[in-house]
Design a protein around this nucleic acid. Structure first.
Length: 123
DNA sequence: CGCCTGACCGTCA
DNA sequence: TTGACGGCCAGGC
């Protein structure tokens, strides 16, 4: 498996998990990382999402329109800073879904999606 | 092949 | 309750 393939597999796993976040809910990069059994790769979840805005390979089945990237924020409940326009777009999309954002922060106890990850017996 | 960066996180003062 | 600091490791050069 080439490095490219592994990268693609990782990205796909991220996108697939992000697609499972319910409408009107949000979760963190770290949680996504855990769900794909790579708890140390939280930063790469962000990289994967960033990749959505780039034009991928022809067979790339994921893109900005079929992956709810805006439902992923950081562990502090805030929209991770990057270029201004993207942050604004994300903020707007969240508000449209009814997610309350105060001081650029979401109350995770209310809108957070942290499903019980029953992989206790996973070793 | 090696070095730098980063849409992060947990820990600790 | 915050802010600084390491640690992490795939991606891009």
């Amino acid at each position: 498996m080439s490095r490219q393939d592994e990268a693609r597999a990782f990205h796909y796993a991220v996108y697939d998990t992000v697609q499972q976040i319910p409408y009107g809910k949000v979760t963190s990069y770290g949680h996504i990382a855990k769900l794909i059994y790579k708890p140390k790769n939280s930063r790469h979840v962000g990289q994967a999402l960033k990749y959505l805005s780039i034009e991928g390979p022809n067979d790339y089945p994921y893109h900005l329109n079929n992956v709810p990237w805006w439902r992923v924020i950081n562990g502090a409940g805030a929209i991770s800073p990057r270029d201004e326009s993207s942050v604004q777009r994300q903020l707007q999309l969240l508000i449209e879904e009814g997610v309350v954002v105060v001081n650029n922060k979401v109350k995770l106890s209310e809108f957070g999606w942290f499903p019980e990850t029953e992989f206790d017996d996973y070793t």
